[in-house]
Amino acid sequence: MNNARDIGDVLLKVEDISLSFGGVQALTDVTFEVRAREVLGIIGPNGAGKSSMLNVINGFYHPDKGRITYKGTTRTKMRPHEAARQGIARTFQNIALFKGMSTLDNIMTGRNTMMHRNFLWQALYLGPARTEELEHRRAVERIIDFLEIEAIRKTPVGRLPYGLQKRVELGRALAAEPELLLLDEPMAGMNLEEKEDMCRFILDVNDEFGTTIALIEHDMAVVMDICDRVVVLDYGRKIADGSPDAVRTNQDVIDAYLGVSHD
């Protein structure tokens, strides 16, 4: 537990978010907030709308209804590159890395929003653009050290094993120096050792950089261990919101996971 960190004000608030695909209601009136520097877990059975929620937050999906308030600005929808520029970075459930590019280049793309030199300078790779590139390169090397992936710096990520790809994807998200980090099942498909590593990285990121993290995870032991607060979704509705201990004993949550007997 990291109770030592001080949880700050509300960084992101989603209110009454509803989203449907044709006739399927993915989210219904979901409201919750994410506070600065906390680790928020979003859990729920398969199809509960967890990934849809992340997609709404970073603008891949535009909700039918509701408001998103991020850093004091309220809007009805986000746009992906806007979200990225405002400090929201994410990883995906099915890794979305640039498979043909090296680990280093993948992580460098994460710094894309921070490159300011104009196109001509960059095209010529001269002067300020070159200095800037080197600065970014140093930042990326720090991330590579931090995630302990020095050995695979030049390897095309398509060739890496699954667990390492997940780590590179985390690195790319970190490269943007995000304020809010969205992790969609960062530990899915990992073995115990890889999970422990990933937990350590997530907690370190939160600790060292004060990054706010919202993560979706199915492994309850992990969620209970690393999250300060947990939001539970079921069939697109929020059914619980509170500390891991409170959520664990919540009857609605138990019913959602285990089913209700009808006799």
Binding site: F60, A84, F92, A96, L97, G110, N112, Q122, Y125
Partner: peptide, 23 residues
Amino acid sequence: KTAIGRALRAVADDHQAALAVGI
């Protein structure tokens, strides 16, 4: 060698991921 070139390769590789990193 350039950031734009890298962004171009990123877009070619995966549209969704490129959007997510703000390209």
